[in-house]
């Protein structure tokens, strides 16, 4: 047998093996498809549960279902205005105790106003009698200023008092007693704003209940600051300030609720 014949024979065998291999491949593919169909029949597909890995924990996930979606949405809307206008919500929270307490300063202011007006009329009479118009005019102006300042304080207090505002106007000391205790607390407050990362939103609304003898019986946080350092410093200042001066008789014999706003800038009523 020549080499050429041998090569031809080998080519023939090779061709035959190619055919067998091709058939084998086709058989493997067909078998795998059949096996897959059989597997699909014997093992029905499991229920697919979609889990979103991106959604934040607080937000409603797909597991919660679409029905739960509208519910959480109003919640942030309600919460949103609170940081923007910090003062209005605070009085609302302390409405019940404040209404009863705030009536006392308003009545006191009215009484004081009456007294001042009486004093004014007396002074006018004296001025007429003595005809010292210049001095009387100065005195009248001073008294009017005093009355006006007290009147505006009372007006504001009653305004916020409608909502039960414990926290008076930020500026000005409308009430001598409150101003006095505010000074005491301010002096006892040990706080450094440099220890805060940011002063934004750093406000602590605190209402304290003062017994007639001046003892602070209760401290209530109407709103806390994000910084625990500030919150604790407020608590320490109030504890250190107790007992405060005794409540004047004008406020009555009952305990008094007073509200303070602690900010890194200082204490205000």
């Amino acid at each position: 047998m020549s080499i050429r014949d041998e090569l031809k024979q080998e080519q023939k065998r090779f061709t035959r093996w190619i055919g067998i291999a091709a058939l084998g491949h086709v058989a493997v593919v067909v078998l795998s498809i059949l096996l897959q169909i059989y597997w699909a029949h014997t093992h029905p597909p499991l229920k697919v549960v979609s889990v979103s890995l991106v959604t934040l924990p607080g937000a409603p996930g797909p597991a919660g279902g679409p029905a739960s979606l509208p519910e959480p949405e109003p919640a942030p809307v309600k919460e949103a205005p609170e940081p923007k206008a910090p003062e209005p919500p605070a009085p609302k929270k302390v409405s019940e105790p404040a209404v009863t307490k705030k009536t006392v300063p308003v009545e006191n202011a009215k009484a004081e106003k009456q007294r001042l007006e009486e004093a004014l009329s007396k002074l006018k009479q004296k001025a007429d009698s003595r005809q010292q118009s210049q001095n009387i005019g100065n005195a009248l102006a001073n008294l009017q200023k005093k009355v006006a300042s007290q009147g505006s304080g009372g007006a504001h207090g009653s305004g916020t008092g409608g909502g039960g505002g414990l926290y008076g106007p930020g500026g000005g000391a409308s009430d001598p007693y409150k101003s006095k205790i505010a000074d005491i607390i301010q002096n006892n407050w040990q706080f450094s704003s440099q220890l805060l990362r940011s002063t934004k939103g750093m406000e602590v609304y605190v209402a304290i209940n003062i017994l007639p003898d001046g003892t602070i019986s209760q401290i209530r946080y109407d709103r806390k600051a994000p910084s625990e350092y500030l919150n604790n410093s407020v608590k320490l200042a109030l504890q250190k300030s107790s007992p405060l001066p005794a409540i004047p008789r004008e406020y009555g014999s009952r305990s008094l609720w007073v509200g303070f706003v602690f900010t890194p800038e200082g204490v205000s009523q």
Partner: peptide
């Protein structure tokens, strides 16, 4: 296919 044919051959 060719590989299997060669391997077999």
């Amino acid at each position: 296919v060719l590989s299997w044919a060669i391997i077999a051959l």
